[in-house]
Design a protein around this nucleic acid. Structure first.
Length: 178
DNA sequence: AGATTGATCCAT
DNA sequence: TGGATCAATCTG
């Protein structure tokens, strides 16, 4: 019997190039703790939003109150409302002062679900915005020893960013091949 | 294909 | 202060 690995990812994991972090997050486990209950699922799809010039990123308009967290240190949650009804969950990456984050687009838990449903399923709302991804905050990511080999990763264009000019075609969406 | 929904941002 | 925009989902 193999010992069950459960290692909570720390800030040094997130404080690396965003594309590296995005790919490395595939196969990791998102864990939500509410009281004595836990909600868990494996991350299956992510998107990278990188730097101040990425027009698809909220940070491209500078340090606005909403995007400010993306300029902060790695390993913090960025939760925001889209379309007036859904929350999206992102984890801030790279060094303080460089705005970047990875959007958690899909998680395998009772079937694969999209970004709005991820937040509904995991009971994530703005209370978690700007909180660290630690046990204390009630939402973190664990390494459970699952390795995704590079051949099992699908690369594609990001979703819903047709307005983003030359940044539209960046293949910064990564998912686990079905 | 359209409705829904509201925070955010920018132009006025 | 008002209007356009939006990293989504559901319904028909």
């Amino acid at each position: 019997m193999v010992a069950r690995l459960r290692r909570i990812l720390r800030s040094d994991f997130y404080n690396r190039p965003t594309l590296t972090v995005a790919k490395a997050l595939l196969g990791k486990f998102l864990v939500r703790k509410i009281g004595h209950k836990k909600i868990e699922g494996m991350i299956t799809e992510v998107e990278a939003y990188v730097g101040p010039n990425d027009r698809a990123s909220h940070a491209s308009r500078g340090r606005t109150p909403r995007a400010e967290i993306m300029f902060g240190p790695a390993g913090h949650w960025y939760v925001y409302l889209v379309y007036g009804m859904h929350y999206c969950l992102n984890i801030v990456t790279e060094r303080k002062g460089y705005p970047a984050a990875v959007l958690i687009r899909a998680v395998a838990a009772d079937g694969v679900i999209g970004p709005g449903k991820v937040c509904r399923y995991f009971k994530i709302d703005r209370q978690l915005n700007q909180k660290p991804a630690t046990w204390a905050s009630g939402l973190w990511i664990e390494d459970r020893g699952i390795k995704i080999n590079p051949g099992g990763v699908v690369r594609g264009r990001r979703v819903g960013v047709d307005y983003a000019g030359k940044w539209r075609d960046k293949k910064w969406r990564f998912s686990i091949a079905a």
